[in-house]
């Protein structure tokens, strides 16, 4: 859902053509969100349909350029304005835990340990990434990593908590 908004953001920066939007997106998320070209084009079509972007024509290499419309800008702003609500059951592991309890799943502990291991791997991975961000000076991304680490810390604590039950 936010692919749409990220494309709007990239176009708000300057007019781009399809391929530029794909590389721009990869750079923004540090390639941590795989996005194929098809997804980009279908999204662009939908945006154009909804009058959020328009095309002033093609560039010298005959690639279709896109610019953001006034409505597009408004949509982007209102999206940024909107606070994000957190749904309790959006986390898949929460759901797994719920169901496992429901069916008296025997290897629940195993399940928890496996999850914990994954999370520790994530911690190590993110810590390394953070060190990278430090070196490259990408502060925004670094803050996202910090955020993710804080989440992981809480999650691991919670895993320890439920592992004891």
């Amino acid at each position: 859902m936010s692919v749409k908004h990220s494309l709007l953001a990239l176009l708000y920066e300057r007019p781009r053509h399809g391929y530029e939007l794909k590389t721009g997106f990869d750079e923004l998320v540090q390639s941590m969100w795989p996005l194929n070209a098809g997804q980009v084009y279908t999204t662009l079509d939908r945006l154009e349909r909804d009058d959020l972007i328009e095309s002033p024509g093609n560039d010298q290499k005959d690639r279709k350029l896109y610019t953001i419309t006034e409505k597009g800008v408004e949509t982007l702003w209102s999206w940024l304005e909107e606070p994000v609500e957190r749904s309790l059951l959006k986390d898949e592991f929460y759901f797994k835990y719920l169901c496992a309890s429901h069916v008296d799943y025997e290897d629940k502990q195993q399940m928890i340990q496996a999850q914990k291991q994954t999370m520790i791997k994530d911690v190590l991975h993110l810590t390394q990434m953070k060190q990278q961000m430090n070196r490259s000076g990408n502060d925004t991304m670094r803050m996202l990593v910090e955020g993710a680490l804080l989440h992981l810390e809480a999650d691991i604590k919670w895993l320890d908590m439920i592992a004891k039950d």
Binding site: Q113, K116, Q117, T118, I120, K121, L124, I156, D160, A163
Partner: peptide, 16 residues
């Protein structure tokens, strides 16, 4: 070692 495969496994066991 950080590059070891079982890094996370050991850690999680240790932290249990």
């Amino acid at each position: 070692q950080r590059e070891d495969e079982d890094y996370a496994e050991f850690l999680s066991r240790f932290m249990a």
